[in-house]
């Protein structure tokens, strides 16, 4: 799993590629935590478009970052979510959590 990221103001955009399972979970958790360690970051946008596999362990990693952000009033936006991964988010009720939503990339989003 690879992460490419960019920051614009209080918003961090991270593009994930590869497989998000238990094996890669610790590394992805550490990388995402580093991206949002600065508490002036209030929004994390995860571009899931190139994630080729995700299971409940991957869901746990994303959920963990959502909790970190929501504790400080921040938001998590999930974007370009492939159908099979969307099913897992729906199953968990991810999109109905306060401060978590589906989003779209805008024209100024670049990495």
């Amino acid at each position: 799993m690879r992460i490419q990221a960019s920051r614009k103001g209080r918003r961090v955009l991270a593009r994930l590629s590869g497989e998000l399972d238990h094996h890669g979970a610790a590394e992805i958790r550490a990388k995402l935590n580093a991206l949002i360690a600065d508490h002036t970051v209030s929004e994390l946008v995860l571009d899931m478009g190139n994630v080729t596999f995700m299971d409940s362990a991957g869901l746990g990693v994303i959920l963990g970052r959502y909790r970190d952000l929501s504790r400080r009033g921040g938001r998590l936006i999930l974007t370009c979510v492939p159908g099979d991964i969307d099913r897992l988010f729906e199953m968990y009720g991810m999109y109905s959590l306060a401060g978590c939503g589906r989003g779209m990339l805008d024209a100024t989003d670049t990495i």
Binding site: R29, D55, S56, A57, G60, L63, G64, Y92
Partner: peptide, 14 residues
């Protein structure tokens, strides 16, 4: 503490 979602069996059953 491991940030497990608790959804493993639910995923298998679904």
């Amino acid at each position: 503490e491991l940030e497990r979602s608790g959804m493993g069996f639910t995923v298998m059953e679904t």
